[in-house]
């Protein structure tokens, strides 16, 4: 907010000083603003560490995530052999937390891609064609907005069994509404621009205009909202898993681990490590999203 404002002034001054050198593109400008946002940069570093640990951490440890090493070693506090202690079955919590991170991050990303595809298509078509099409399509979004969606996901999971892929799609299918609204709003203003008029004049088909000229210009707001959707998807997955309707043993996710931790009050580390890592990850995504918003859409603040 104020930071980016000062930056703008600074940028303006340096622009004047270096006006002979070269103009700066919109994206370059946005990148500068993003990299001067300390919270966003710190979050990106932390997130990179979390992702790296989730990908490579389990390989470095000698424990497997489903290994029940020692029946006497259940619910052990953190030690040099088990960095985060062990769970109620004597499995190494460090490895399980990182495997859980893999699953939770995967759900976050895949579900967000699903929501991205549905939301962008829906919003761009409604916004571009306008009129009655727009009315009907956005009315549907309004109605869906008022539904208790998570209950339908629960019914889905119960009816069709706990499949990981079904959960990816189901969570994605409930997170696309806001994306559709944002995209529609942007499209409404984009379609009045001269380059769309030019494309129409040379006879490009409407669907091709949407795909080639509208959608690429939506990247800014969509990127911002994607970073904010991932934490929601991660939350939805862990919520389902917490209720026992998501990821099934021996595979694990942050929700499963938190649920196990909540049932073992005598061993607080089984709750604190997964919960802490999840909260950190969600915070990072939110800070990056805020940073991107300030960088790409400065007039919003």
């Amino acid at each position: 907010m104020t930071n980016s404002h000062i930056d703008l002034n600074k940028n303006a001054q340096s622009m004047e000083a270096a006006s002979e050198i070269a103009g700066r593109s919109l994206w370059e400008d946005a990148r500068r603003r993003l990299f001067s946002n300390k919270a966003a940069i710190t979050s990106m570093v932390i997130l990179a560490v979390v992702v790296g640990a989730a990908l490579f951490g389990p390989m470095l440890s000698s424990h497997g995530y489903e290994d029940i090493r020692d029946y006497s070693a259940y619910l052990e506090p953190p030690s040099s052999t088990h960095w985060m202690g062990t769970d109620e079955n004597g499995r190494d919590l460090f490895v399980r937390t990182l495997i859980g991170a893999r699953v939770s991050l995967a759900v976050g990303i895949v579900a967000t891609i699903v929501s991205l595809i549905i939301g962008v298509t829906w919003g761009a078509v409604a916004g571009y064609f306008g009129g009655r099409v727009d009315n009907v399509m956005m009315r549907i979004v309004d109605i869906l907005y008022s539904l208790p969606f998570i209950f339908f996901v629960i019914i889905l999971m119960v009816v069709f069994g706990n499949s990981l892929w079904l959960m990816f799609v189901a969570i994605g299918a409930i997170e696309w509404l806001t994306m559709a609204r944002i995209v529609r709003g942007q499209t409404l203003s984009l379609k009045e621009k001269e380059f769309v008029e030019a494309a129409k004049a040379i006879g490009v088909s409407p669907l091709k205009i949407v795909a080639r000229h509208i959608v690429p210009n939506l990247v800014g707001p969509v990127v911002i909202y994607v970073t904010l959707t991932i934490p929601y998807a991660i939350l939805a997955e862990s919520f389902l898993s917490f209720l026992g309707l998501g990821v099934q043993e021996p595979l694990t996710s942050w929700g499963v681990l938190i649920s196990e931790g909540a049932n073992a009050p005598s061993a607080p580390w089984t709750l604190l490590f997964p919960a802490g890592l999840m909260a950190t990850t969600l915070l990072c995504f939110n800070f990056i999203g805020d940073g991107l918003r300030d960088a790409l859409d400065p007039k919003d603040r």
Binding site: M1, T2, P231, L235, S238, F239, F242, G255, I258, S259, G261, A262, P265, P268, L271, A275, M278, A279, L282, L283, N286
Partner: peptide, 29 residues
């Protein structure tokens, strides 16, 4: 943009990122 504001907003950000099912066991503990 004063300390109170930053404090409240930091707590609010945490409140959004830490879901019910983590808060509840933590409160219980």
């Amino acid at each position: 943009n004063k300390a109170t504001d930053y404090g409240v907003m930091a707590v609010a950000m945490a409140g959004i990122c830490i879901p019910n099912f983590v808060v509840a066991p933590l409160l219980t503990l």
